[in-house]
Structure formats: C-alpha cells, structure tokens
C-alpha cells in the first residue's frame, strides 16, 4: 500500500513538474485572439524616443495582444485625419492635435497619456540670458512655423509671461532650429526639450532651456483612436494600451536593454553618435515618469483648451470628456 502511495506521489510530482516546465508565453491567452494588423502613424522619424514601442514589439507584447504592428513614420496630422476617417485605428499624437481635430469634427479620442509633460521648450545660448518666459520680450525666436506643438508651446509660454506675438519676433525657419541658433540667425528657438538641447550640449554649446512644462501643464503625446473603434472594438484598444504599458514599464526598468533594442529599429544608426542617442533616451524618459502611467490629468486638457482658445484656433470650448478617456488604462 505504501509502495503504491509512493508511486502515485512520484507521478503527481512529475505532472506538476511537467506543467511548470510549459513555456511562459503559452500562459497568455493568444490562441483565442484573432490577429489584427495595425499600422501606427508615429508622427516623426525612427528615434530612440519610441523605445517603449520598439521594446513591446521586440518582446512580442503586441503579438501576444493579437496585434501585428507596423510602424508608419508619416506626418502627425495625416495620421490623425486617417484615424478620424476610421481608415486607421490608432496614431501617436500630441495633445493639441486631439482638440484641433475634434474642433473640425473628427471623432478622435485620446486613450493613453504616454508623455506626462509637454516636451516643447525655448532654448538659447547662455550669453543671451534668457532664463524665464518674460525674458523672451523683444527677442527673435525661431520655430518651424506657425503650426504644430512648437508654436502651441511657445504661445503657452508667452501667455504665461503676459506677452503677445507682437512683443517678440517670430521667425518661421522650418525644422532648422539648431542650425539657426548656431548661425546666430535667432536669439532663441522653440524646440523639444528632450532632443535639441542635448544635441547642442553634445556639440559643446552651453544653452539655457525654458521648459513649457515648468510653467503650464499641457496634455502631451499619447495614443489616439476613434469613436468607432471604441464602440465596436474596445478590447482592441485595451490590448493595444496593455502592450504599450508593458513596453513602457520594461523601458523604464531597464533603459540599457531598451537602448539596445532601439538599434534594431532605427535604420540610420550612427555609431559615433551613440552616446548622444543614449542621452536623448534618458532625457525623454523623464517625460514618461508617472505614478499612474497612461492616465490623462483633466487639468492638462483644460489648460490646452485655454491656450488654443487664446490663439483663436478654437472658436468655443469643446466637450473635453469626448476628447479623452482613461477607461482603457488598467485599474480605471
């Protein structure tokens, strides 16, 4: 009897051992999820700034969520229009684009706050002594044009300082801000705080940076979808958000590994600038830090609407509850 008991115990132990040896991936319910091809407009060129997406893709988080993800580095506005027309389900966009699009009737909804702070800033060489928004009065400020996040961020800074466009000289120079500053064509330039100042510092320049985020909290970069997708396929949105969150968490936990993964996704990778790319990734990660990753703060949307109303780009306030939602972020 004891012998039979021992044999049964051994068989039971072996079965438990066998079950424990099953691959981890098979525990994730991928079998039942039909795979969906998603083309994701990124709004910018391949960059280490997309590390969470590269990590999630490389580690199979999108695949496990039933998403066959394709990165599409097209213009932000085109991506928003395609999502609005339901030709695409998702796009990565800056906060102001959501309100501008909804103002024109595009049924788009922001579902995941990836960046917690608005990345736009004004940079100038230290000898200019431009240290706070009020110091911009009378200065020549280079920016890509009177559109997009750079312009919105700059207007927010000017508003904060009680300045108008007439108090400064705006210089539309395309995306040549770094060169314009070095060449002395402008006193300061509107840039992304996580990018151009790092480039300038790596070239030995000493720059002062006025970050919009230090003065106004504005809705920043995140994931956009549309009302049809939310209504007809909310699980897809949940799965997409879930995969991005995993990629974000992994990147924040191990930036070095994320950086290595980025190399596989960025075709034009200059070995000589690797240290610069690493610095840009680390600087960008500061904008992703949050106790509640993915959650939109209502005040940031209120502030963004206020700025756009002041610019005349919104004729009247929008229903902000329609513009963003936190319901797809786990725990909400």
């Amino acid at each position: 009897m004891d012998r039979r008991k021992n044999i049964l115990l051994i068989i039971l132990f072996l079965l438990i051992l066998l079950a424990a040896c099953r691959p981890v991936q098979s525990q994730i319910p991928t079998v039942d999820i039909p795979k969906v091809h998603i083309r994701l407009p990124m709004g910018y060129i391949p960059s280490v700034q997309y590390a969470p997406f590269y990590v999630a893709h490389s580690r199979g988080y999108f695949e496990q969520a039933g998403i066959d993800l394709e990165f599409d580095y097209q213009l932000e506005t085109d991506g928003v229009a395609l999502v609005g027309a339901d030709d695409l389900q998702f796009a990565l966009v800056s906060g102001e684009q959501v309100l501008l699009a909804r103002n024109q009737g595009l049924p788009v909804v922001y579902v995941f706050a990836w960046w917690q702070d608005y990345p736009v800033a004004v940079a100038s060489f230290t000898d200019q002594d431009i240290l706070e928004p009020a110091d911009l009065a009378g200065k020549k400020i280079g920016l890509p044009g009177l559109f997009g996040a750079n312009y919105v961020g700059l207007r927010a800074l000017l508003d904060f300082a009680g300045l108008s466009e007439l108090d400064v000289q705006l210089d539309s120079i395309g995306f040549t801000q770094v060169d314009a500053l070095i060449a002395g064509l402008d006193d300061s330039v509107a840039i992304y705080a996580n990018n151009e100042p790092i480039q300038l510092k790596s070239q030995g320049y000493s720059v002062d940076v006025i970050r919009v985020a230090d003065y106004v909290d504005l809705a920043s970069n995140g994931l956009l979808t549309n009302e049809i997708t939310i209504k007809e396929n909310p699980e897809l949105v949940e799965r997409m958000v879930g995969a991005i969150l995993k990629g974000l968490a992994d990147t924040m936990a191990d930036p070095d590994a994320a950086f290595e993964i980025c190399k596989k996704y960025i075709e034009v990778w200059d070995q000589e600038n690797e240290a610069l790319y690493k610095d840009i990734l680390l600087a960008t990660m500061e904008y992703w830090k949050s106790d509640q990753p993915g959650i939109s703060q209502p005040q940031t949307w209120e502030n963004m609407q206020e700025v756009l109303l002041g610019m005349g780009w919104l004729a009247e306030p929008l229903d902000l509850d329609q513009a963003y939602t936190n319901r797809f972020v786990p725990g909400n």
Partner: peptide, 21 residues
Amino acid sequence: FVGADRGLGFLINQSRGLYDT
C-alpha cells in the same frame, strides 16, 4: 512650405495643421 509665416504655402500648411481641409 519649408519655412514661412505668410503666403499661400503657409496658409496650406497651417490649414492642414488645423484639419481645415
């Protein structure tokens, strides 16, 4: 298109940014 704050090219660029097709 590359850089301007006036002209029809600027108007196209800005309108595109405002989804004013």
